[in-house]
Design a protein around this nucleic acid. Structure first.
Length: 416
DNA sequence: TCTGGGGTCCTAGGACCC
DNA sequence: TCTGGGGTCCTAGGACCC
């Protein structure tokens, strides 16, 4: 049996942990630049605030109901996520961390409601984060069980183990809520009269393969109780790493774009070194504001190759700037830019080039020192000059909560 | 005024090899 | 009359996930 632990309204719950006044009150967390709603407390959901809704469109609603609004605080969410995962690991030997707020658990030994409830309680008590726990024979069914646990049970725990129970659950489970069925697939399924998860389970496999590729078949088998996705305990090395941002204010001049692209490229390089990977390709893209139909639209991108795979900041930033130069046009106003490094290989397996002129050993030591200092003193304390110093392109984050657990200055003081 | 960011997998088609 | 058979690699596009 496989368990799926899923944090309830995770980001919203994180904001509440150290600020109990927010309990039972509507609360939303906004995306970068305070753009869209990306997390909602149950009270906020009840007000009809939708996932992904732009903040400016619900301004009146927020004011009327005194909804508490927060900018994303990834330092806080990341740290609380680690705490939740570590607590789960203290109870279950094999844990697959699937996302910032979800983990698959090996429940093959003991899958009782009592055990599930006690794990849920422990996480709540140790971290302050409420979770739901679904248990079933496959990952896809565990997803269904978790859905049911969250929506329809008081305990927040649900086990799908009996064929009759599974059939009944799937019969009332909307097909669009299945794991792996997105908006497009849902539409096509419904047009063919497949409305529930049970319909999906019973559909002709050949038709399924034709229309929904091999993934459709896998999902169907998983719903029938046949495992197609195992617990993955060793996270795979990333194949692509992307750093992209919308700007707080639109940018017109080359210098600022260059500073932003340099910074994104440097972040990619830092992430690569953290993964102990090198990349052999880099893409840079720019975007004008698509919500301004009257403005000139331009969404260029370009990919360049490195002769020798690298994770050296100077090399990657320099290549990013070469790429930028070739796509930049000065008659456009830019809203977003990004850098993607691709084709990664483990850094110990890099194929050297005969004609390489860089002293890689020396550079590796330099990068090691830079990373170490930045870790101690704060991000980008040491940076390349092309990253600039003003950071005029930076994000808008007007409602940022304190980093209660990761910054000394933000630690709570409590009157007793 | 104002609309996020970071990933993966699968498939078809083109180019190429012997 | 008639024009092989068996592969790999790469890329773009489309779908999905959180």
């Amino acid at each position: 049996m496989i368990g799926l632990a899923d944090c309830n309204n995770f980001y919203a719950s994180c904001e509440r942990v150290f600020n109990p006044q927010l309990r039972n009150k509507p609360l939303v967390v906004l995306s970068n630049n305070d753009g869209c709603v990306i997390a909602r407390s149950n009270e906020a959901k009840a007000l009809g605030i939708k996932m992904g809704e732009p903040a400016f469109k619900i301004k009146a609603l927020i004011e009327k109901h005194k909804v508490n609004v927060f900018s994303t605080n990834f330092a806080l969410y990341g740290d609380l996520s680690d705490r939740v995962m570590n607590t789960l690991k203290s109870e279950v030997e094999r844990v697959e961390i699937y996302s910032i707020d979800e983990a698959f658990l090996d429940f093959s030994e003991l899958s009782t409601t009592d055990r599930a409830v006690s794990i849920k309680k422990k996480v709540q008590q140790w971290t302050g984060i409420p979770i739901s726990l679904g248990i079933a024979p496959t990952k896809s069914l565990a997803k269904v069980a978790n859905h049911i646990a969250k929506k329809y049970t008081k305990k927040g725990v649900f086990i799908l183990d009996d064929e009759n129970v599974i059939k009944r659950a799937l019969n009332f489970f909307p097909v669009e809520d299945l794991w792996g069925v997105g908006r497009k697939y849902a539409k096509r399924l419904k047009q063919s009269g497949i409305n529930t998860a049970l319909d999906f389970r019973n559909v002709d496999p050949e038709w399924l393969r034709r229309n929904f590729s091999v993934n459709g078949i896998r999902l169907q088998k998983e719903l029938q109780g046949e495992k197609c996705y195992d617990l993955e305990l060793n996270p795979a090395r990333k194949k692509n790493i992307c750093t992209a941002r919308s700007f707080g204010k639109e940018i017109e001049d080359y210098k600022r774009i260059k500073e932003a692209v340099s910074t994104f490229a440097n972040t990619c390089a830092t992430k690569l070194r953290k993964e102990k990977s090198c990349c052999s390709k880099i893409s840079v893209f720019l975007m004008t504001n698509p919500y301004k139909p009257n403005a000139k639209q331009y969404h260029p991108h370009i990919t360049l190759d490195f002769q020798t795979p690298t994770n050296d900041s100077a090399e990657i930033v320099s290549m990013a700037n070469t790429a930028l130069k070739s796509i930049y046009r000065d008659d456009c106003i830019y809203k977003k830019a990004g850098v993607i490094v691709q084709n990664t290989t483990p850094q110990e397996e890099v194929q050297m080039s005969l004609f390489d002129t860089i002293d890689r050993d020396k550079r590796r030591k330099l990068m090691y020192s830079v990373d170490k200092i930045n870790m101690l003193m704060g991000k980008d304390k040491i940076r390349l000059a092309s990253q600039g110093f003003e950071r005029r392109w930076k994000l808008r984050q007007e409602k940022l909560s304190p980093c209660y657990t990761t910054r000394f200055a933000d630690i709570l003081t409590i009157d007793i």
